[in-house]
Design a protein around this nucleic acid. Structure first.
Lengths: 112, 112
DNA sequence: TCCATGTATTCGTTTATGCGAATACGTCAT
DNA sequence: ATGACGTATTCGCATAAACGAATACATGGA
């Protein structure tokens, strides 16, 4: 049973994975890991229209990956589980390894 | 610099993340973690048409997440970095946490 | 209550992604 | 070379996501 059951996990699993499938959302998650922020702050930080940020936040919210807290008219978002950053960083490590191997096979001299 | 630069990492990062965005590919990765398999074996195990498996493998191959090795007319695929399974399992842990909280908020009595 | 600020949603369009079906390509044995 | 088996690719279609633009909704103060 190394391959988990589709019905109970894989389908929902894909729900989580999809949240990671957009660059903007990845940025948002990193930004929220730095510190909780409200929508406008995120929009300015990422140089992105506010509605776009709001829509991405809605995705993360629907999946339960972020929490909200009102602060007057503003809404402060925060990561609900910092392990998503662990996931992202692990992925970056994997990516680095892949890129290195790729460079090796191409006979590219190591830069950096 | 808690929010990594887009150009160098996030965009490529999304390349990795997208590989996780399909349920079939997740199954394939788990199946390959069990043991290297050839295309037909995967197709049978996952009860999926061979061309579909091949296309998903092409995605994983393009991203460098799997390696190939010929065995006669067959091609044996293997995970190129088992840490992808760590990523997936970590995501599952996160998912479980989210589901629990969700149940709590709904006042659902704990089953299991 | 009305306004200003901040946030969320809708609409229409564009782009990407996955699939079934058919087919092409590769490898090996005869 | 031909055929059988295994794998990869192409085509057309259907679905899903993301975006810009416009707009609706919510909150708090005058």
């Amino acid at each position: 049973m190394a391959v988990p059951q589709i019905e109970e996990l894989e389908l929902l699993h894909a729900r989580i994975c999809r949240a990671f499938g957009d660059t903007k959302r990845i940025q948002i998650m990193y930004a929220l890991h730095e510190e909780p922020r409200h929508v406008t702050a995120l929009a300015e930080l990422l140089d992105t229209p506010q509605p776009t940020i709001s829509r991405h936040l809605a995705v993360l919210r629907d999946r339960g990956l972020v929490t909200t807290q009102r602060d007057g008219a503003a809404v402060v978002y925060a990561l609900s589980d910092d392990r998503v950053i662990m996931v992202l960083n692990l992925m970056r490590q994997i990516l680095r390894g892949l890129l290195e191997r790729q460079s090796d096979h191409l006979g590219v001299s190591e830069s950096r």
